[in-house]
Amino acid sequence: MKNVRIIPRLDIKGPNLVKGIHMEGLRVLGQPWEFARHYYENGADELIFVDVVASLYQRNSLKDIISKTARETFIPLTVAGGIRTIENMKDILRAGADKVAINTAAIQNPEFIRTASRLFGSSTIVVSIEAMLENGKYLVYTDNGREYTGVEALAWAKKAEELGAGEILLTSIDREGTGEGFDEELTIMVSKAVSIPVIACGGCGTLEHVAGVILDGGAEAVSMASVLHYAMAGRSDAARITGEGNTEFLRSGRSLSTITPLGIGDIKKYLRSHAIPCRHELDGINAK
């Protein structure tokens, strides 16, 4: 069996790390950089940064965070959110991203995938698909789950591959932020239909969920946010928040009752004990 990747997803609004449920009701959880460093040092295989409001306001405020992360961590970094032009891509790659993920811009102009993958190489271009189940069909949404497109996820995934996408970041809007488990049906449907890697995202709540979406969903990589973030949120170093946003959750000192926080080390140990190979420290030290 192939090695799978564990990829923390960091949703960013302004200067802060945020997390919502079904992509709404964003809570401020802390400083993105502190989370990124923690995940890097604890064995994350990659990082995904998502500027969750960029698409809405057509701006991208991630560059400072990307630059700092790229200077101090040395694992692949994917950036998503509000990337609409080749110039945007150049900017983000120059700031330190290794890959860019596009959703809205690709739906509006599918040829953009081809242009971008020819210019930067397929392995640099990730197509992000955010899908919701409606009347038995998985339909694609854009603008971080806000805009209905009517496009079917399966057909869109195949087309994205054909146009030169290197990977698919597949998010279930129904499961996103709930901790109820990945949408394995959505994942296996897409994974079986394309020959490029699929990153499953949305719904991770337990170790069994991670193993399930790999074994039954056919995911090459698994991305998660809440389960990792809530283990970190509230730590004094991460909680120095600035700027606007809903900070009530952080101030209250509560934990999220529906999700038991997990560490990356816990996840990898569990996977390996279930014969799912993944990168791990060979000398038994789980950090730098």
Binding site: R5, I196, P197
Partner: peptide, 16 residues
């Protein structure tokens, strides 16, 4: 080789 008997996707993207 695509397809291959391991069901491995190409490109290889990941740790090995």
């Amino acid at each position: 080789p695509v397809p291959n008997n391991e069901g491995a996707k190409v490109p290889q993207i990941g740790w090995n």
